[in-house]
Design a protein around this nucleic acid. Structure first.
Lengths: 256, 256
DNA sequence: TATGCATAACTAGTATACAAGATATTTTAC
DNA sequence: GTAAAATATCTTGTATACTAGTTATGCATA
């Protein structure tokens, strides 16, 4: 390829010292998509997971130096991880003072559920029109896995399968990217869910609800599919009142 | 050593070297919300705006050192800004190689429009039910401003007012946070819009469409409001075919 | 001239040192 | 004894030096 002159204009060829403008490397443009082994990525993932499953409770101070020592790395990648979390409003960083696990903003919580319902409704409606046979079979397989995990009682795996179902519906709708939007939204809601719901005995109900969504999709009944999905997601509805007294420090009530 | 005993429990007092756990500073918990003057924030904003209004075209290399010299600051804040852009998929950073303004992903573009419509539909429906008189008056004022800006032909200001209208609808719905979600989604679509539409003569149409949305909201006709909003947003629909040939390097066609 | 390889120049990733502000502690004044 | 001021010790923000990998360049070789 060194030999093969590509068809570019001579104007672009004139720039020799620098990389030719407007030409990202042709060879590996988004290999970067593969999981990065960057330290900041590891720290980010660990911290995010710990915050989401409430291992790190709201208000807990996050000291860069401490994390630095735990991982045996320098402050730079730790700092990058914390900045990402700050953007997702999972931590509050107060300049020159400290960084803390953010309290759960109840206003955002409510809006997140509304937004999720709106997005999933669009997905399920489109999936009803466009889902291929193979996609439906995949969804059926996920439901079967949920059924099995429900029997074995593996909550974590069940939860993963639950998400896989929703992601699968988004994929079947031709809007896989919308699921990644939902996942971002889901972070805050998930913190609440983990904090409040023991979730015992609800697994069987979820499986049934997923099945009724898929049934409607399969028979092409868009309105029924939407209704079933909305009914399913309505179970997320939060009742914050109870917890206002229990853990007042975990929540942020006043909208900023 | 501690002369002034505060009223804290002895359990908490045992931790002396560290700040007491689970206690973010009471005084200024979210003063951080005020606009930060951090250098990284300034660089981020400048770069983001330049990318969104296509001053920086897709594929343009972003050299940290160069930005460093332009602003007279060190690499650290520049790097933080670039990392934020990478998360929003506005730049691609290829380790040890280079950072480039991301090409516009057409698949994401399409999904972004679908998502926006879904979210705005939820907002406008709820706004019809909940909008206060004052909120409706504010929206009416925004439309009037649009009318005036349309006459004076100030595209940038009109565009801002356009956004203000949609934000106002979200506020009236009681879901102001959903507008910030939409704004994130809007970034990619905006790049496309700036690139393709001269947008001349469309301003008057937009004003009329906004007015018809607000009229429906005011008379409490949710379905009409939703229909008007969808009609309005449908104008965003993209026709990528034309531009595939014009600027093939600006777009990313294959879904990763 | 064409091809492969060594080398130089560049990039982003990381480590570390220092600066600036906030908080906690101690000292001092009354 | 109380309160206010001085000080020490935290924190995050920034600058800079260094590391490691990538890309371009030029030279040797056929």
């Amino acid at each position: 390829m060194a030999v093969s002159l590509n068809e570019r204009s001579s104007a672009e060829l004139k720039v020799r010292k620098q990389r030719a403008p407007n030409s990202p490397p042709r060879g590996a443009p988004d290999r970067h998509a593969g999981q990065a082994t960057r330290n900041s990525e590891i720290v980010y993932r660990d911290l995010r997971d710990a915050i989401v499953d409430v291992t790190l409770t709201p208000g807990t101070p996050l000291v860069e130096k401490e994390i630095t020592e735990r991982y045996g790395i320098s402050r730079t990648p730790v700092r990058e991880a914390i900045l990402r979390l700050a953007e997702e409003q999972l931590v509050d960083v107060i300049p020159k003072s400290g960084t803390f696990v953010a309290r759960i903003p109840v206003a955002v919580l409510h809006e997140a559920i509304v937004a999720r319902k709106a997005l999933e409704e669009a997905c399920v409606r489109e999936a009803t029109a466009k889902a291929s046979k193979s996609q439906i079979m995949e969804l059926r397989a996920i439901i079967q896995r949920e059924y099995e995990l429900c029997a074995s009682g593996d909550e974590q795996a069940f939860h993963d399968a639950d998400n896989a179902f929703h992601a699968g519906v988004a994929a079947a709708s031709g809007y896989p990217g919308i699921w990644s939007m939902i996942e971002k939204i889901r972070l805050q809601v998930e913190r609440y869910r983990r904090l409040t719901l023991p979730q015992t005995g609800r697994m069987a109900l979820i499986v049934a609800e997923h099945a009724s969504v898929l049934d409607a999709i399969e028979r092409g009944d868009a309105e029924a599919a939407v209704a079933a999905m909305n009914n399913h997601l309505n179970k997320l509805q939060i009742d914050i009142g109870t917890f206002r007294d229990l853990w007042p420090d975990y929540f942020l009530f006043d909208k900023k």
